[in-house]
Amino acid sequence: MNIEEIRGIPITDFLARLGHEPTARKGNEWWYSAPYREERTPSFRVNIRKNVWQDFGTGGGGDIFHLAGEFTGSSDFKEQAKFIVAAWGGVLPENGAAFRPKEKKPDEHPDEETCSVKATFGPLYNKVLLRYLEERGICSDVALPNCEEVRYTLRGKRYFNIGFRNISGGYELRNRLFKGSLSPKDISLIDNGSDTCNLFEGFIDYLSWMVLGLGCGDDYLVLNSVALLERSYGFLDKYDHILCYLDRDEAGRRTLETLRKRYGNRIEDCSALYKGFKDLNEYLQNRLPQD
């Protein structure tokens, strides 16, 4: 696929491929809950005629490449293209010039400011972040050994996030209002030397699994995005058993089918445990005592 073919992918179809469906459709405007952060009221709009998006919660917006940048936490155009093609299906040309962004003429407006983020890391002691996890059913006894507190300043504002490290040194970031990542984007692996691996889409589901006490001593692999599935193969290939706790949605089903084609009966679908719920964390939350 070249740059124009990628840019021509309908953003609504791309979001559906990632498992995100609109909450409302009003003419050319489709509304979603922001797909890369947590929010209670949908504030993410796609104009299907112009094929552009806008996030009224953060002020962000743009085309499909800008959207991929939000998912990957990267401003690198090539990394954005790789993410889109991995999720959509297709092949990037070997010649990088074929998908290099067009150079701007001197009289054109310069690119928007790209903010570099210098983050600091430490133990997860922030009470607001811990309270957010508790509301999702995750106790500090599970969160503290698995997560870090990530602090950074962006455009003069200070931010605090729950951070979950991946194998490349990047982090998945969460707080009550934000869902994103700190590049580089990659999978996460907890290797205990087991011949069984438990597979999750996101780290909140992994933490939920730990809270539920479904086992111990196995290995754990968190995709951090179904678009990163191929990166997991080099690790999953060695396991005799792969227990899948994927979301009960279209993206989760497609991911499971892809894994079955590669691994056959080494794959076990464990989603029946949380039948009636979207994912493992939603199941956990519904087991909590009601006030």
Score class of each variant (00 low, 15 high):
residue 291 D to I: 11
residue 65 F to S: 03
residue 279 D to F: 07
residue 116 S to A: 13
residue 26 K to N: 15
residue 161 N to M: 15
residue 241 H to V: 05
residue 117 V to E: 14
residue 273 L to N: 01
residue 199 L to H: 00
residue 219 D to T: 10
residue 247 D to L: 05
residue 260 R to S: 04
residue 73 G to K: 03
residue 21 E to F: 11
residue 81 A to T: 08
residue 184 P to V: 03
residue 31 W to N: 10
residue 78 K to A: 12
residue 60 G to H: 08
residue 192 N to H: 08
residue 74 S to Y: 02
residue 236 L to P: 06
residue 122 G to T: 08
residue 288 L to V: 07
residue 127 K to F: 03
residue 278 K to A: 09
residue 160 F to N: 05
residue 247 D to S: 04
residue 8 G to Q: 14
residue 215 G to D: 15
residue 48 I to L: 11
residue 237 D to Q: 13
residue 34 A to Q: 12
residue 40 R to W: 05
residue 251 A to I: 08
residue 217 G to S: 13
residue 161 N to T: 04
residue 204 I to M: 15
residue 53 W to N: 01
residue 13 D to G: 01
residue 276 G to C: 05
residue 246 L to H: 05
residue 109 H to P: 02
residue 271 S to T: 15
residue 243 L to N: 10
residue 240 D to N: 14
residue 253 R to W: 09
residue 280 L to W: 00
residue 26 K to C: 13
residue 208 S to I: 08
residue 97 A to E: 15
residue 94 E to L: 11
residue 275 K to G: 02
residue 194 S to E: 00
residue 30 W to M: 15
residue 90 G to L: 08
residue 152 Y to T: 06
residue 49 R to K: 15
residue 58 T to H: 09
residue 169 G to S: 03
residue 161 N to E: 15
residue 285 Q to I: 03
residue 173 L to Q: 04
residue 145 P to L: 06
residue 15 L to A: 05
residue 259 L to P: 03
residue 152 Y to Q: 09
residue 75 S to W: 04
residue 61 G to P: 01
residue 140 S to M: 01
residue 266 R to L: 10
residue 214 L to G: 03
residue 264 G to S: 15
residue 201 E to L: 06
residue 60 G to E: 09
residue 239 Y to R: 09
residue 132 Y to T: 05
residue 4 E to A: 08
residue 60 G to F: 04
residue 42 P to N: 09
residue 194 S to Y: 01
residue 241 H to D: 06
residue 61 G to L: 02
residue 137 G to I: 04
residue 278 K to H: 04
residue 135 E to P: 00
residue 104 K to T: 05
residue 176 R to D: 03
residue 210 M to P: 03
residue 194 S to M: 02
residue 129 L to Y: 08
residue 147 C to G: 07
residue 36 Y to K: 13
residue 72 T to I: 06
residue 241 H to K: 14
residue 284 L to I: 07
residue 251 A to L: 05
residue 125 Y to P: 01
residue 102 K to N: 13
residue 278 K to W: 03
residue 192 N to S: 11
residue 146 N to S: 05
residue 15 L to H: 09
residue 238 K to A: 15
residue 133 L to R: 09
residue 20 H to G: 00
residue 259 L to F: 01
residue 275 K to R: 12
residue 281 N to S: 00
residue 38 E to H: 11
residue 24 A to F: 14
residue 201 E to R: 04
residue 15 L to M: 14
residue 248 R to I: 03
residue 252 G to K: 05
residue 46 V to M: 03
residue 10 P to F: 07
residue 195 D to G: 01
